[in-house]
């Protein structure tokens, strides 16, 4: 099992803020909108240095999505910023009609996704957003794993023409991906080659998968670990290549089982390569208040849960 050394822990939302600030300097068409959460989204630097390209919308997310669609007419590349909950469920119809169906080049940037939002509780802990966004025709869905990858993804989506949902989070997590690693939309990243099981992880669960990989190695299990930062379009070739070798699969994500990464991979396997699969995800439940670590443990989204899922799926392998 490979080591993934890191020197600091950072939040993925700060990676977004840093990427957006860099885009301010390098791409004159990039504009940003925020619904009263500049500090939470780490948009301060962009607001300070590019005030003429920043629009404070206030607590009016539906309006923000419409404004963003309108700003593309004239060649702007709008990045909207608010919590994942208010970036998706609250404004699904606005995104559907004015952005996705209209094919607008809007980047929906969503922070505080999932349980790791923590103490604010279930009203804010959206676990359905990936499902909603991936169902929209033409929508690209990206969930990077750490600060560096989130920054790289932020830069990459500005160069991509079309609507994108970029999902990131609140807590600090190990920043282990190389700072100079280019972000390729739709291209899965091999983290550890293995032969016994394929673990496909996204977002904060990528690091948990690495921790699980070490625990599994102690048990003599050689896990292949792949970072699926782009949930849609899914890198089907990378997934199939891996599962044809390992013959069993675990998916890991900070999302509902219904509609998430595991759901996408299960569908692919059912069509192309039916094999046993276990999902590490929230099982048809809302979250609750607590610290991120407490919640990830209670809802079964940590390395121990991944190890248990691997042992179960390997026992099912024919």
């Amino acid at each position: 099992m490979k080591d993934f050394p890191y020197t600091e822990k950072k939040d993925t939302r700060s990676g977004f803020g840093a990427g957006l600030h860099e885009l301010g300097k390098t791409n004159a068409n990039v504009v940003a909108l925020c619904a009263d959460l500049i500090g939470s989204l780490k948009m301060d630097a962009f607001v300070k240095d590019f005030p003429e390209r920043f629009f404070q919308v206030g607590i009016a997310e539906a309006n923000m999505m419409g404004l963003a669609a309108g700003l593309t007419i004239g060649g702007k590349i709008p990045f909207t910023g608010t919590f994942a909950n208010f970036s998706t469920g609250r404004v699904y119809d606005q995104i559907r009609q004015s952005i996705a169906y209209s094919g607008k080049n809007v980047k929906i940037c969503a922070s505080h996704a999932g349980l790791t939002l923590g103490e604010d509780g279930a009203t804010h802990q959206i676990l359905e957003d990936v499902g909603m966004m991936k169902m929209l025709p033409g929508m690209t869905v990206i969930n990077p794993c750490d600060y560096n990858q989130t920054k790289a993804a932020t830069l990459a989506i500005a160069d991509y023409e079309g609507p994108v949902y970029l999902r990131f989070g609140r807590p600090v997590v190990p920043n282990f991906t190389p700072a100079d690693q280019k972000f390729e939309i739709g291209k899965a990243l091999m983290l550890n080659e293995g032969t016994d099981v394929s673990i496909f992880a996204t977002g904060h669960l990528v690091w948990k998968a690495i921790l699980a990989g070490h625990l599994l190695a102690e048990k003599g299990i050689n896990a292949e670990i792949i970072n699926i930062h782009t949930i849609k379009p899914l890198d089907e070739e990378a997934v199939l290549q891996s599962v044809r070798k390992t013959r069993c699969v675990v998916t890991a994500e900070e999302h509902q089982m219904h509609g998430g990464l595991g759901d996408s991979i299960a569908q692919l396997l059912a069509r192309e390569e039916p094999l046993p699969l276990e999902m590490v995800a929230v099982n048809d439940s809302f979250g609750e208040s607590g610290t991120p670590d407490q919640l990830m443990e209670k809802y079964g989204l940590n390395e121990a849960a991944i190890v248990a899922a691997v042992e179960k799926v390997m026992s099912r392998r024919k």
């Binding site: 007419i73 702007k76 606005q94």
Partner: peptide, 13 residues
């Protein structure tokens, strides 16, 4: 209910 927002965005562009 969506067109006014879009038009304002286009006006700001």
């Amino acid at each position: 209910g969506q067109g006014l927002s879009v038009a304002i965005g286009a006006a700001q562009a």
